[in-house]
Amino acid sequence: MANRVLIVGGRGRIGSSVAQDILTYTDAEVTITGRNPEGSLPPELSPDRSRFLALDLADSAALRQAVSSSNLVVHCAGPFHYRDAGVLKTCIEAGVNYTDVSDSRSFTRRALDCRETAKNAGVTAIINTGIFPGVSNSMVRRDVEQLDSAEHIHLSYVVGGSGGAGVTVMRTTFLGLQTPFDVLVDGKLQQIKPYTDRETIEFPAPYGKTGVYWFDMPEAITLPETFPVKTVITKFGTSPDLYNHLTWFVAKYWPDSWLKNNSVIEFLSYVSYGMTAVSNNFSGVGVAVRSQVSGIKNGQPAKVRSTALHPNAATAAGIGTGSIAQLMLEGTLTKPGVWSVEQALSTELFEGAMQSRNLKIEQVLL
């Protein structure tokens, strides 16, 4: 029998990109879910091996039935700031493997709290599997492995316009401005305000030198758990640079009560999405990720830098998650418990998956 994959929230841009990757690289049958009973498959998906299922995550009985009919569940229903670990827990109870495109620190902590339960149930759950987090985690692991010891990790990301994604990505950005967060710097936890400490990073063309700012990402908590480093920096920026300055202004000057108001978040999200509909025409919708790891090699200080580039950020997220799904369906990637990508995926498997999808990652030893 063919594998059956359930993609929760699969009608969005990222969810449909994940579905396309799975349909291309596996023989699985894919079920896409959405809340609207009148919903349908995204037009880019063929009905030959895919179908639509109306599903409200609040309906626990319907969720259990859908999960139990699947070999793998892919959770794409963001923003994950609003999500509990209910889908993951349902998968663990049903003995079904799980992965997701989560990008929220709070959700990541809730998911990791289920590690022992998943391990005891023999369920493999791999979280944060898109482009960043996701591919970015594996880039760091690959860089760390080039050194005898690693001390400092610096991850930077830039997205062109909307990134080819929907309004949910805009919500995620503004939700990330709500709360200061802890980061590991020089061996100590420090509290950082979001979208501060602008830094200019050299990305591959067409981005070049681009401003990036502190942004709360799950890698900031999973990488120190995985590698014995002293510092983990995660910074994010957008192109064109005008959006960086506008986001910085909102983060710095708008009252906390505004940023924690759902109506304000919705307003900002839709206004921003409307603006990118225009700017996408000249900024593109691509993504670039840069990993730089500093440490010791052969007794001397050394740095390893990797960069990845894709013309569509949503498609790149589909590649990250779809490749994990493929390896899980094939039985190549089996690790009972709940894990971030760098904790579960070997560099050899990562390189093979990226090569098969023509996502080139350049790496240099400095």
Rank of each mutant, 00 (worst) to 15 (best):
K303F: 10
E330H: 05
R290G: 03
V278D: 06
S323E: 08
V264C: 02
L309M: 13
V289L: 04
V293S: 01
R305W: 03
N281M: 13
T315W: 14
L259R: 11
G284I: 11
K297S: 08
K260M: 09
N261Q: 09
P301M: 11
T276F: 06
I296Q: 09
N312T: 02
L309H: 05
M328L: 05
V293T: 02
A277I: 11
A314W: 09
G274E: 08
R305G: 01
N281K: 15
P301Q: 08
N261P: 02
A277E: 14
K260Q: 11
N261L: 01
Y270W: 13
V264F: 13
S294G: 07
S283V: 02
G320Q: 03
G318T: 04
V289M: 08
T332R: 13
A316W: 06
A314F: 06
F282Q: 06
E266K: 13
M328Q: 01
S263M: 12
I324S: 00
V293P: 03
N298M: 11
V287L: 05
S257I: 12
I324M: 00
M328P: 03
F282W: 14
A277R: 15
A316I: 10
Y273F: 15
L309T: 06
S294M: 10
G318E: 05
G322K: 03
S263A: 14
G284F: 02
V264R: 01
L268F: 07
P311F: 01
T307Q: 05
R290K: 15
Q292M: 03
I319M: 02
K303M: 10
G320F: 00
N261F: 10
S263F: 11
N298D: 14
S257D: 13
